[in-house]
């Protein structure tokens, strides 16, 4: 398989947006899954990694929005900061995959993922402090909500996302990054 066409990238983005709605529902039976596993971040990051920054950005904006429209989760009041966070995840993941070419898929994936997850948290934190909750959102709150409580989710995402990319390559559903590997 060669490079993906625009149509294919578009449809993959559509599927990832749909998964932003479906995945949190699938995790429903697991207690506290929403805050522990952060399931909505997975399709957004994956979309950015695979399709590129424009698509990741769209997925990050539309995914949480659709989820609110259809399942009323996250609630309207949380939606704007969530959209900012996810949009940065998708966008930065895509940009980094374009910039970083170490020759090893795993290395590329991890560098891009960590960069995206950091950038998303920093920018969402700034947005909260400046726009959404001016004066009430400080450093301590940022560290707790984005790193301490989110730690399990971060670990899980770092394990799951590279596995997913490799599984999709193995199943020949997305093209290989370097022709030698996999």
């Amino acid at each position: 398989m060669n490079k993906m066409t625009t149509v294919k990238k578009s449809i993959i983005t559509a599927v990832c947006i749909a998964l932003c709605v479906v995945l949190p529902q699938a995790f429903h039976a697991i207690p506290n899954a929403g805050s522990i596993y952060l399931p909505m971040h997975i399709p957004v990051l994956l979309c950015g990694l695979i399709c590129g920054w424009q698509y990741g950005l769209l997925c990050g904006l539309a995914g949480p929005l659709f989820s609110t429209l259809i399942t009323a989760m996250p609630p309207m009041a949380y939606l704007p900061p969530m959209m900012v966070e996810c949009a940065v995840y998708g966008c930065v993941a895509g940009l980094m995959m374009k910039l970083v070419h170490t020759g090893k898929v795993y290395a590329d994936l991890y560098i891009s993922l960590v960069a995206a997850m950091l950038a998303g948290r920093v920018i969402a934190g700034i947005a909260k402090a400046v726009i959404f909750m001016p004066g009430k959102f400080g450093m301590a709150m940022w560290t707790t909500s984005y790193f301490v409580t989110a730690l399990p989710g971060i670990v899980i995402q770092l394990v799951i996302l590279p596995t997913l990319v490799f599984a999709l390559m193995k199943a020949r559903l997305i093209p290989l990054r370097y022709s030698k590997e996999a």
């Binding site: 559509a14 998964l19 522990i36 596993y37 994956l46 394990v159 999709l168 199943a171 559903l173």
Partner: peptide, 22 residues
Amino acid sequence: LDKAGAVMPLVVPIFLAAFKRA
């Protein structure tokens, strides 16, 4: 880490099925 392992059987097939449809 077990938690991460526990969600694999759920997340990986869901994505594979979805990408197959795409």
